[in-house]
């Protein structure tokens, strides 16, 4: 891979008027030529930002690219992301972190539906709320464990068909004793764990998932990720962690075994 001229530098791209393929071509060209920091201005709905970037850097490269996005990135932001960091200064749309393998996405705003669809690694931090089906089909494998931390709350079907990984929902804007407004939580879940700070509405947990109180290992895990959230968005981790959390895990690893012949 050719690396000339701008090794280690920052490149700024004005995305106005660019189609998603033009924008991604410029991002890949910049990264292939050695840029480690990219600033994208005036992003307006271009899809697949940051997709396939790992094909442009060597596997062993220590400095993975960092992308700062200003504006509203389109669907499938950071799809197949492997190692890079994307910071969104605004809201993200649907399918953010689709099938992501590793790396980090930080959203200073809210995210739309199917956040982290089928993801298998890496971390996503969302300052505000998320839409429907967050973490749908998320899975883990060996050392890969996808994590989502959400500062606000979620809409329905959070953790649908979830097979692995961790989702933490902090509900920072909810009043005392106000339940998270989501329904059908963890429907079809068969792996992984979901934590809600605060309570759920009665009947909102899907069949096949159960709620438990947190134990000391959970608290250590929560501390790690809540502290990272607090550091990113300027909140006080100590006071967030003082409130009780609800832990949700699947009752069985094969909820649909009755439906299959084998």
């Amino acid at each position: 891979m050719r690396r000339t001229g701008i090794m280690g530098s920052t490149i700024e791209i004005d995305a106005s008027g660019l189609s998603h393929s033009e924008l991604n071509q410029r991002i890949r060209a910049a990264v292939s030529s050695g840029a480690v920091s990219l600033i994208l201005r005036n992003v307006a709905g271009q899809r697949y930002i940051g997709t396939n970037l790992h094909r442009c850097v060597e596997k062993q490269a220590l400095n993975k690219p960092q992308i700062q996005v200003y504006g509203t990135p389109g669907n499938d932001l950071g799809a197949f992301l492997d190692g890079s960091t994307i910071v969104v200064h605004g809201n993200a749309m649907d399918g953010t972190g689709n099938t992501m393998t590793s790396g980090r996405i930080i959203i200073h705003g809210r995210a739309g539906d199917i956040l982290r669809l089928s993801a298998r690694g890496g971390e996503i931090y969302v300052r505000d709320n998320v839409g429907y089906r967050t973490g749908v089909h998320m899975k883990e494998y060996r050392d890969k464990q996808p994590v989502i931390v959400i500062g606000g709350t979620s809409q329905d079907f959070l953790g649908e068909y979830m097979a692995g990984g961790i989702i933490i929902v902090l509900g920072l804007h909810l009043k005392r004793d106000e339940p998270h407004p989501c329904a059908h939580v963890c429907s079809g879940m068969h792996g992984g764990v979901v934590f809600f700070r605060g309570i759920l509405q009665p009947g909102s947990l899907a069949h096949g998932a159960r709620a438990l109180p947190t134990v000391s290992e959970d608290k250590m895990l929560l501390r790690t990720y809540v502290e990272r959230y607090a550091e990113l968005f300027g909140a006080d981790a100590g006071s967030i962690l003082r409130s009780p959390f609800t832990k949700i895990i699947p009752m069985t690893g094969r909820p649909y075994k009755q439906l299959y012949a084998y």
Partner: peptide, 16 residues
Amino acid sequence: DNLSICVADYSRGDRN
């Protein structure tokens, strides 16, 4: 859907 205000509150102690 914009929690920036709520998050800022957390830097000043538990809002709840």
